[in-house]
Amino acid sequence: MIKLSDVSYAYPDTDHYTLTNVDLDVPQGEVVGIVGASGAGKTTLAKIISGFIPHVDGGALSGRIEVDGINLPESTLAIAVSHVGLVIQSPFNQISGAKFTVREELAFGLENQGVEREEMATRVGEVAKLLGIETLLDRSPYALSGGQQQLVAIASMIIMRTPVLVMDEPTSQLDPGGTRMVFDVMSKLRDSGITLVVFEHKVELLREHASTVHVIADHQIVASGPARKVLSDPRLEKWAIGTTRYTRAAALAEEKSLLPKSTELPVSLEDSIDVFKGFKNLKKG
């Protein structure tokens, strides 16, 4: 669905490369996580996958970028955005500013595409239910809290029904409950056949929802593979992403020979219950 080969990129007016020799292969209908320290180049990669680089930002881009069968750099932005949706980092800026209610804000993209009124209303209702924002529909997008605005921003892209959806830190302003809900929504979208690329650093949730994870560090992809394998890699500490407490506890337990050496440390609660099952309530602690 997404295929990047040997992609390098430098922003205009600089010879410093933000990304070098990136290869990325995302199959259709999966949730793929991309993690990296701040400043590692995540937002840049998100913009490349969604066509905003080079169509908006310019700069020096090389390599092949194919998304949903489209050669993005050689296509136009208008075509790109009908194949890939991008949820940008700042919900405040994702909101158009032109609409006076959340309801109309959600429909903004569909109005631009000339979708029939009845269908718009149905799709607004569906996406509002999906993200639990039905009660906000008649409020002004600017009278919302940061977290509520973020849900509206995500909904405003989901409603576009692009085959590929790229999300750049979509849960930065949400509380744990809201974050979990957004991840559940991602899984639901995947089940309906949509391909999702999510730039996040909530390792535990990525383990639960993503099939594959890639790590960006030093302007490159330094590790790729199944979520549990990549997210339990001790090098995550060095790459400033950090592992979960489960992983650290299991690593320390192995070091102290309390657990047998394993090939894959646990990342999530479920992984750990299995790993530590021998310690189930042995005696009063």
Partner: peptide, 22 residues
């Protein structure tokens, strides 16, 4: 989830518990 009565708040405390239990 493991049915412990103790409440480890960090990795060291958790592993101390493991040691105590083994």
């Amino acid at each position: 989830s493991l049915g412990w009565k103790s409440h480890p708040m960090n990795v060291d405390a958790f592993v101390d518990n493991l040691e105590a239990k083994s």
